[in-house]
Design a protein around this nucleic acid. Structure first.
Lengths: 212, 212
DNA sequence: TAGATTGTTAATCGATTAACAATC
DNA sequence: TAGATTGTTAATCGATTAACAATC
């Protein structure tokens, strides 16, 4: 299975396929054609086939795709067959919400600890996860084989945290701080909540009909 | 200022311009060229000019763009010159984080109440915002002129909530539930946190160099 | 005026969609 | 075998980038 440059657009669709296939499997659907899948997900059948063929052909002419096979292939493409250990820096609203959220566990992504500089928080725990002083970040990452660093701190601290996470050896950074990190070699996924909300404000005031 | 179909890609860049210009203004920068702005934001100068020209020309040949003017134009494009009242359905992790988050207020977006069906939560308040029973959703939206509905409930409830929000008159929906809403006429912005995390997992396992 | 930089048209690049031969 | 549907190539569409005349 030879993987070439996969476009960002394709990558962003992968979790959607994954989600949808999980539902299909749970519903007991055994096979699905690109046409049906496209219809359900509001995509184009050609696009679905093109997407899958970025990673090799998982289908069978005249039959379609076996849901379980496809699901496990996509799970594999997303590298969800290995566990991930994560830490969150910033035990504020977002950090707390993430620590309380159980949904990542299905994908074997476990938040193991939080870090903050607020003395009132240090030593406490959130959903059973310890809140430690940010000074201990590097040591903890190294000692516990943490591969994902989550930045849920204020903007002004984000770059420094990213640098330190990277130096300590994380393999990826999930950034909630509303800024673009620079000089980071590991992959960064930004999740800027406010940006999304502002896009909504924009769209709310366009008189375009939102009905493709 | 004649506005034609603005592409999704352009729309998604608008909040980033807004954010960056806010910083420039705060730093006391008075004017900026498309070239400089592009460099700072890691975009292309032509792209920057094209983007702005979707909405009319805000610049001046030989000078560039006045930061304050440009900022206020973009603020205007994003329709941030009006206040928005919002409610959140689902007073779980995400709902609580949103209610506690003060960052939206700068943009005059105020979360006024939360809704849930858990009797243990109803009657309480989060960051001064009441948690009400979801049965009261429609009444509240109508009575208080709520324009944004935020869905932070579980997947299985999301479509129903969306339908009810829309019927009650919200002008836009911000959806955190991991599913695609259907039959909604008002604009919907999806924010699927898990999708973003899964994209990170994908990228963490590609041996591409992430260094454009 | 000369230099800088926009607004805008044209060229390029990439992603989506269509078409169809291969084949289960 | 006939029908269905993939994998894949070709066509189309749209977004990004380049180029440059207009003009401050």
């Amino acid at each position: 299975m030879e993987v070439r440059k996969v476009s960002e657009a394709v990558i962003r669709r992968l979790p959607k396929y994954y989600r949808h296939l999980l539902i299909l499997q749970k519903t007991g659907v055994e096979r699905i054609s690109s046409g049906k899948l496209a219809q359900q997900m509001r995509l184009n059948a050609s696009q679905v086939r093109q997407d899958f063929n970025c990673f090799g052909g998982f289908g069978q002419q005249g039959y379609g795709y076996n849901v379980s096979t496809l699901l496990s292939e996509i799970k594999n493409i997303l590298s969800l067959n290995q566990p991930y250990r994560a830490v969150v820096v910033g035990a504020g609203n977002i950090g707390t919400a993430l620590a309380n959220f159980e949904g990542f566990e299905r994908d074997s992504i476990a938040i193991e600890a939080l870090f903050d500089i607020d003395p009132a928080l240090i030593g406490s725990s959130i959903n059973g996860k310890p809140v430690l002083h940010t000074d201990e970040l590097e040591t903890y990452i190294k000692k516990n084989g943490i591969s994902i660093g989550i930045i849920a701190a204020r903007r002004s601290a984000a770059q420094n945290i990213a640098d330190r996470m990277q130096a300590a050896g994380v393999r990826g950074i999930w950034n909630f701080a509303p800024m673009d990190l620079t000089e980071v070699e590991v992959p960064v996924e930004n999740l800027h909540m406010t940006d999304s909300l502002l896009c909504l404000c924009y769209k709310m005031n366009q008189n375009n009909l939102y009905e493709e």
